[in-house]
Amino acid sequence: MKYVMELKNVSFGYNGEICIRNFTELFSAEESVIVTGISGCGKSTLLHLMAQLLTPTSGEIVFLGNRIQSKIDQENVRRDIGLILQFHSLLSEFSAVENVALPLIGKGVSIQNALQIARKWLKNVGLEKKENSNVLELSGGEQQRVSVARAFVQNPKLILADEATGNLDEDTALNIVQLCIRYAKEIQAAMVWVSHDLSHKMQFDKHIILK
């Protein structure tokens, strides 16, 4: 079976202190995984390693059967990953639709086409009426939905979410979790959801607890 991502004996540490030790896990397409654990156990670090924002000190990461060996490999892999962060990570100079269109523009899609696809995704997350609003004018939940639309707009192979509902109320959080799981399955992507909150664990196919 071809996995979307394979982590084999991955370790990582900050300033000589190891926070991820010999982590091994396989992630398949259409599979949704929640990673939980206490504060400081390395959940976010693991996600940053998977998102290729950090490089493991040892072990190897394989993406779609190809071992990631260089910075260029990391950059190429990032193009196939949709990342959702706790603080929505939107660019404040741009409108909602422009923020969603950014990954497509980066891939060379014309601005007109990129905006058209972005509008479709904003409609999917229920923000079609706010597409031209500046992201700073949106509520926290709306901003996070823009962030979700941006993560899905380029049909990635892997969706990674780091405490994506940490700032939201219970209903909004559940809504976003369900939205992400549904679209990840629709586009046949693997999804890894990092959270300290266990209330949504039943929504996912697999639960990994970091110690």
Binding site: D80, P103, S147
Partner: peptide, 9 residues
């Protein structure tokens, strides 16, 4: 953000 969330090189 551009590099992590939008895949810019």
């Amino acid at each position: 953000v551009l590099r992590a969330c939008a895949g810019y090189t």
